[in-house]
Design a protein around this nucleic acid. Structure first.
Lengths: 256, 256
DNA sequence: CGGGACCTTGAGGCTCGTCAAAGCTGGTGG
DNA sequence: CCACCAGCTTTGACGAGCCTCAAGGTCCCG
């Protein structure tokens, strides 16, 4: 077994397969023991990657789908020289690398924000497996769908929401995702800078900083540098309105 | 053969398979005649749909992937009651319905902006075909990748660009897409209202209107209601900068 | 202890949204 | 054929929200 870690100093506890998105991916949807083993066999566990060491850059040939095991990864597109647009932050138990499905090359870049470990699923072997095991195939489709839905929610955020709503949405999204993965939903450390948050949310750094301060004044949260504590979850949710980032939008079904 | 049309009064000329995205999808990537026929057999050509008659609404069960044959379709998410966020406009030869891949239900809605015909590819039969024919599978993956890349470009637009840049990007995107499909790249009719354009680009109607006027004053375009003529393509392109909407971003490959 | 990266805070200005009103267009009905 | 209305579009005036610029503070690292 290759479960032992190369990294003695993980910045977060490694996620066991139980808490990890991969568990849904591996275990549940009707795989028997041998099939499960087939899947596990193609997964390559990376040694720990230091902050700043890219998983891939724009233009790199497609190799693998990645699942973050511990740490966190920033996904972004370089725009003007020295500039970038942050597309997302990937937390433990989440996937990245779908941008490559189309072409031979990545259309964005991914870099750890802190010491990070990932699981690699080589695309060629994954594809074979998708053909052999419908359950794997459908899991991949689910993940892709989530990717698209997530992008759509982000478009709503950037198209319609005010700065306050954006930041509240961002904080609640982190809270929900941490909770799902067994971390605290009420307090956590941000692995990204104010600058990166602003970039992601379409705001200037100063605006992010000011709104953090405002939220703190209003007793919604307590912030100390990168440590955030949510004091009034309900108030924060009120700010967001409907369409929070990480739940599917309300399923309003009209009669035809 | 079911090639005959039910719609005598198409608002645009129907796109023949040659100019249609479907051609790439059907013909090229190593399908022989019988395989090709298999694919064509699952495609259901719709009668013409009038403006406003939804293809699907949010919450509807997933049925099919759609390709627009003639006309145009607006894809959007209802947000607050009476409000919406437009996610995109689908032109002849383009696909929609990928939002459903994840769940059993659509996460957005699609409605024709004018009289429209589409080709339907039922997901269940398409899936079978994907398993049988790798070429079909890979084509689908390409389309999904395009969907994701397109969303990313939209995030950049909403996160970084000014109103002028957004509208210029929008016009050039239409121009490129019309050209690819054999229509004029220099003049065309918009099938969407100013309101819908503004919604899509994260701008107020009035702003859209003003910038159309400004572009006209500057001699970049000529606008008459929904008829747009591009007079200075190069100037317009200068406004956009890099990362135009419908070409993959420049593939900057850094040495490691 | 000093330098650099990051964060905060303040002042001012610009872009764009809001509100209001009027023009245009197409459709309907007298 | 014209009058009228609804919906879309345009234009203007105003103000708010957020960005830019600038300066000072804090933390971390060597």
């Amino acid at each position: 077994m290759i479960l032992q870690h190369y990294a003695p100093n993980l910045s977060r506890a490694a996620v066991s397969c139980k808490n990890c998105c991969l568990s849904e991916f591996c275990l549940p949807t009707g795989l028997n023991a041998t099939e499960l083993e087939q899947l596990i066999n193609i997964i390559h566990r990376s040694p720990s990657l230091p902050r700043g060491k890219h998983l891939f850059k724009i233009g790199d040939p497609i190799q693998s789908l990645y699942a973050v095991r511990s740490g966190s990864v920033k996904v972004y597109v370089p725009t003007e020289p020295g500039e970038e647009q942050v597309l997302g932050f990937i937390l433990p138990g989440e996937f990245l690398g779908f941008d490559g499905i189309e072409a031979q090359h990545h259309t964005c870049a991914a870099v750890p924000l802190e010491t990070t470990t990932v699981c690699e699923l080589p695309y060629d072997r994954l594809e074979e497996l998708c053909h052999a095991l419908p359950a794997v195939d459908s899991r991949i489709h689910k993940l892709i769908g989530k990717e698209i839905t997530g992008d759509h929610e982000m478009l709503i955020l950037l198209g319609k929401k005010t700065a306050e709503e954006r930041l509240a949405t961002f904080l609640l999204s982190l809270s929900v995702r941490f909770k799902q993965r067994g971390f605290s939903e009420r307090d956590f450390n941000l692995s990204m800078s104010r600058h990166e948050i602003g970039n992601y949310l379409g705001l200037a750094v100063e605006t992010v900083s000011r709104i953090f301060a405002r939220f703190q004044d209003e007793g919604l949260i307590s912030v100390n540098r990168r440590y955030v504590e949510i004091l009034a979850m309900d108030e924060l949710k009120k700010l967001v309105g409907d369409c929070p980032m990480d739940e599917t939008c309300a399923r309003v079904r009209e009669a035809p």
